[in-house]
Simulated assay, not measured.
Amino acid sequence: MTGSLSDFEHLAAQCRDSLTGVPGGARSPDAWLFARLVAAREVRGERALLGLSAATLGALAARHFAASGGALAAPQHEALLVLDEAHAAFVAAMRDFLVGLAAPEVDADDARCLATILAHACLRPDHLWRDLGLSGRDDVTQMLTRFFPELVVRNTDNLRWKKLLARELALSVGGVPGPAPGCPGCEDFGFCFPGGKAAVQGS
């Protein structure tokens, strides 16, 4: 699928509203968040990049979307997301790490879905908010504050969120902090990792 950024943003907004069933809104803040995350990939034919199985996505739709996600009813003809062993290990470790930090008041299945989406986003070469299809860093901060508030507390140095996620995962297992797998492709890699000498996690 081709098109300008504004075209995709317009399509994503339409898809989001179709998912929520409430133009410009949703039944809950969590429904709004997941509709934005899913729509951003859906309109690009990149549903697989969410990292969610069809069953998991269906259950998410049933919890949050109008008519159980009618906008997702038609299957997408796309290649499945293929990970090498190192990336698969990184995703599994990041997902489990995030689930362990989930706020007790959030739905456990929602926390697992978001942890999976975040873990897969760390494989891609851009700022986390762009990889997620959100509007900016503040959106990520709000999302993490809701679902994984301990991460926000730990970010005392105001690190980029993808760098913070990779650092905290490494520290949790006694490893040496380094970039997430997608970090080297980011325009700000040299800013976050001067010299680019840190080992990339999962590579």
Rank of each mutant, 00 (worst) to 15 (best):
residue 72 L to V: 00
residue 94 M to F: 02
residue 150 E to Q: 15
residue 49 L to A: 12
residue 144 L to S: 03
residue 59 A to C: 10
residue 106 V to K: 06
residue 147 F to M: 07
residue 67 A to M: 11
residue 52 L to C: 00
residue 83 L to P: 07
residue 182 G to Q: 09
residue 65 F to L: 03
residue 178 G to H: 02
residue 123 L to W: 08
residue 56 T to C: 04
residue 77 H to I: 13
residue 61 A to E: 07
residue 164 L to G: 06
residue 184 P to S: 12
residue 186 C to M: 04
residue 105 E to L: 14
residue 180 A to Y: 00
residue 82 V to N: 12
residue 150 E to M: 13
residue 59 A to P: 04
residue 103 A to I: 09
residue 116 T to V: 04
residue 153 V to A: 15
residue 184 P to W: 08
residue 134 L to Q: 01
residue 117 I to V: 14
residue 81 L to V: 13
residue 130 R to C: 12
residue 141 T to W: 05
residue 59 A to S: 12
residue 175 G to K: 01
residue 62 A to V: 11
residue 99 V to Q: 11
residue 158 N to A: 15
residue 67 A to F: 11
residue 93 A to P: 06
residue 74 A to S: 12
residue 97 F to W: 08
residue 86 A to R: 15
residue 128 L to F: 07
residue 139 D to C: 12
residue 121 A to S: 15
residue 140 V to C: 05
residue 112 R to C: 09
residue 105 E to W: 14
residue 141 T to Y: 07
residue 75 P to S: 06
residue 85 E to H: 07
residue 59 A to N: 08
residue 144 L to H: 05
residue 49 L to R: 13
residue 80 L to P: 10
residue 67 A to V: 09
residue 158 N to H: 15
residue 52 L to H: 02
residue 51 G to M: 00
residue 50 L to Q: 01
residue 89 A to T: 14
residue 180 A to W: 00
residue 111 A to T: 04
residue 117 I to M: 03
residue 99 V to G: 07
residue 191 F to I: 11
residue 153 V to R: 15
residue 167 R to T: 15
residue 60 L to K: 04
residue 105 E to R: 14
residue 60 L to E: 05
residue 126 D to H: 10
residue 74 A to D: 09
residue 48 A to H: 11
residue 186 C to V: 09
residue 166 A to I: 00
residue 147 F to G: 06
residue 133 G to Q: 02
residue 65 F to H: 08
residue 77 H to N: 12
residue 110 D to C: 03
residue 171 L to N: 13
residue 80 L to W: 12
residue 95 R to Q: 14
residue 149 P to Q: 01
residue 175 G to F: 00
residue 88 A to W: 10
residue 116 T to Y: 02
residue 153 V to S: 14
residue 156 T to V: 15
residue 83 L to W: 02
residue 133 G to T: 00
residue 60 L to A: 03
residue 62 A to K: 13
residue 136 G to E: 01
residue 53 S to N: 09
